[in-house]
Amino acid sequence: MKIVFAGTPEFAAQAMRAIEKAGHQIVLALTQPDRRAGRGMHLQASPVKLFAQEKNIPVLQPASLKQSHPDLQKQAAALEAYQYLSGIDFDAMVVVAYGLILPQDVLDIASRNGRYGCFNIHASLLPRWRGAAPIQRAIESGDACTGVSIMQMDAGLDTGDTVLVGDLKIASDETSATLHDRLAKLGAELMVKVLNDLDKDVVIARTPQPSIGITYAEKILKNEAEIDWQLSAVEIDRRIRAFNPFPGSTSSLQGEQFKFWNSCLPKQVQIDPDAKPGQIVGCSADGVYVQCGEGVIEILEMQKPGGKKISASLCIPGGISAPNLMRFEKAANKQGDVNV
């Protein structure tokens, strides 16, 4: 089959590689414009663009697909993309973490002339966690399982019919980084199965999403990173793992702001009835114990300002002999705003 592929990050590139490896022909790649990143803030191509260039696949990078955009430059880029799509031969469109809204006129192109329409790989069990950050929100909320939904796209926000679904259990030590990789692999496999079935003229059943159980995964904001030690150990542990790798949970210790990358709930730890939330109450071979609003959390991996990720026990001044009065606190600037 001839496929138009729209996507940007590595999650999308993995599906793109699987589609190409399965023998389908990707005739066009749509991806977001190159972004400045890294310490040197150099322009960097997306993983989807890099793979497309490797395979000599044409690439378009409009900043918007809305032909009515008020920015004339973006409007012109959207018109160029629309005209290109209108003029090429393809069977279906696959969209994965593209980052741009597909207007109805683009969806219509994918359904013309007997085409199969536009399919999306969404990293949740729809209608649970529609929206921008389904992986992070599933961990943050303590979901026991999640998965991937292959959806026939419509003009709504992740509201289309599902055509194939696969689920995964969320491990107790799962981070967004590890769950991302497992879901990317599952999503690629499911998308290839759908395309293979279509290529064999297998009728694909479409299942409307239920009207109950709808939740929205709002975009992760940097100001969510600051740890509130008044929360329970369970809630803080989920947030630390959910915000790994972005934006990384943060807290201040003796005037320095640290990032927290991994944690767990200790099975057995002596409770100090006088300990305050944020107070270090002990150390283990793997990390440090910190009192929370309810319960104790074991911080496993931290990062000093300007340093590398290391065992939390090595980040604490004095190591395992650190005084119990040492306490993580909310970092604030002179105006009282959180530093993230």
Rank of each mutant, 00 (worst) to 15 (best):
A6F: 03
E20R: 09
I26N: 00
I26R: 03
V27C: 10
V27Y: 05
T31N: 06
P33G: 10
G38I: 00
G38V: 06
F51S: 10
K55H: 14
I57H: 11
I57W: 10
P58K: 07
L60A: 01
Q61C: 12
D71Y: 11
L72G: 02
Q73C: 03
A76N: 11
L79H: 01
L85G: 02
I88T: 07
V94Q: 00
V96M: 08
L100W: 05
P103H: 11
V106H: 03
R112A: 13
C118D: 01
H122R: 06
A123V: 01
L125M: 15
R128C: 06
R128V: 10
R130K: 13
S141F: 09
G142N: 08
C145N: 13
M153R: 11
M153V: 10
D158Q: 07
T159A: 14
D161G: 03
D161V: 05
L164M: 14
L164Y: 01
A171Q: 10
S172Y: 05
D173P: 04
E174W: 00
T175Q: 00
D181I: 04
A184R: 01
V194I: 15
N196D: 15
N196F: 02
L198M: 13
K200Q: 15
V203Y: 04
T207N: 14
I212M: 02
L221C: 01
K222Y: 00
R239N: 11
R241T: 07
F246A: 08
L253G: 06
Q254N: 14
F260T: 00
P277R: 00
D286M: 15
V288R: 07
V290Y: 05
V290P: 04
E294I: 06
G306A: 08
S313M: 15
G318A: 08
G319Q: 08
S321T: 12
L325T: 15
L325W: 15
L325G: 04
L325M: 12
A331R: 02
Q335H: 13
